[in-house]
Simulated assay, not measured.
Amino acid sequence: MKFHIENMTCGGCARGVTSAIKAVDPAASIAADPPTRTVNVETMVARDEIVSALINAGFSPASE
């Protein structure tokens, strides 16, 4: 699944996004790209759970 996260603007933000997703699925494969503000996630966890984790961490994801 792919998300656009408008407020992910730096490496620190990317680490926060990664940590939020890993808290829900430690086995997830995550590729965060701050310059394009996109995150690609390979996970077996439902999209809603990932979205909730991101929102709880202060990031507002939009599906791409």
Rank of each mutant, 00 (worst) to 15 (best):
F3P: 14
N7F: 10
T36P: 03
L54N: 11
R15G: 13
C10E: 11
T9Q: 12
A14M: 07
F59S: 00
T38N: 13
P26S: 11
P34R: 01
S29H: 05
P35D: 00
G11K: 02
M8S: 08
P35Y: 03
I55E: 15
C10A: 12
A62S: 14
V51R: 01
A31R: 15
G58L: 01
R15A: 15
T9H: 15
A57R: 02
H4M: 02
V41P: 03
M44L: 11
F3D: 00
A20L: 08
G58K: 02
S63M: 06
H4C: 03
H4S: 06
V51Q: 00
P35G: 10
G16N: 06
P26L: 01
E49I: 07
G12T: 01
I21F: 07
A62T: 15
A14W: 00
P34Y: 04
E64L: 09
V45R: 12
F3E: 05
G11L: 04
N40W: 04
V41H: 00
R37D: 02
A20M: 08
E6D: 14
P61L: 01
R37A: 12
I55P: 02
R15Q: 13
A28G: 08
A14C: 04
K22Y: 04
T43R: 08
D48M: 01
H4W: 05
V51S: 07
R47K: 15
D25P: 14
I30T: 09
A20H: 00
I21E: 06
S19C: 01
K22M: 08
I30L: 08
A57Y: 05
V24R: 03
T38V: 06
R37N: 11
R15V: 09
V45H: 07
P26V: 03
G16T: 01
C10R: 09
A62H: 13
P35K: 00
H4F: 11
E64F: 07
A62R: 13
N40Q: 12
E49L: 12
R37M: 04
T18N: 05
A31F: 09
T38S: 09
I50M: 10
S63G: 12
I5D: 01
